[in-house]
Design a protein around this nucleic acid. Structure first.
Lengths: 116, 116
DNA sequence: GGAATATGTGAGCATATATTCAAATGAAGG
DNA sequence: CCTTCATTTGAATATATGCTCACATATTCC
């Protein structure tokens, strides 16, 4: 017989049970995954990295990243959805910035990790 | 004429230039995106959250998440690739743990963000 | 050596997602 | 009002990705 899951011989039951009790809810972990997923795209990372230096309008971002405004706007929508960026209107422009300092900190720490 | 990109009227040139100078290299930002991408999946988040409490073998993780060992192993490969988890062999078992405390900190901060 | 078990891996499929294209919305100015 | 321009949005498409299945590898025990 071949089961793809473990047959109970190798499972460290006590430890698994203890960890299981401490785990956050599925719902919470899904939200956490969605949050990191929003950070896990090179376009969105470049947007956020740029915004960590200064607030910028969609046009500025498109110019900076050498991309269409449409593509940038689509990605900003994702970031707004996760409350990672916020914006204010100034005439025809929408001026985006990081939602809070917390986000900048996470980016910093990510960069530290990448730099070994 | 309709260009999808901005025609220079709205671009805050000085700011864009200043930000452009401060930006990390494309290469670095790609790596950063790949790092967050590795965190941006519910299966991998659940694995990491579990490992934040205790080291666990593949079998334990499969049992805890109610998934096949194969699926877990595939995701552990992604996490290894980003140096997010490490493992040691103990007989037939591969016992995984978070690569460093840094990762646990990032998870904590992510959870704080999700909890508003 | 051979059986049993835990883990790793490659191919295939089904889903998710990033960009483009076309069009809509909204604001400023003539 | 009409034009212009910044931004947003929906549909379509091409690519990326997670899981399954089958098989390979590795280790322990007989």
């Amino acid at each position: 017989m071949r089961l793809d899951t473990c047959q109970g011989v190798c499972v460290h039951t006590e430890v698994v049970d203890a960890v299981n009790k401490k785990m956050e809810s599925e719902e919470m972990l899904f939200q956490l995954a969605d949050f990191f997923k929003a950070l896990g795209d090179s376009t969105r990372i470049r947007i956020l990295h740029a915004l960590s230096f200064s607030e910028l309008c969609v046009c500025d971002l498109a110019s900076l990243l050498n991309m269409s405004s449409s593509a940038v706007s689509h990605q900003l929508r994702v970031l707004r959805g996760q409350k990672i960026v916020k914006y204010r209107k100034d005439g025809k422009n929408a001026i985006y910035s990081l939602d809070d300092a917390h986000v900048a900190t996470l980016l910093e720490q990510g960069l530290e990790h990448v730099n070994e």
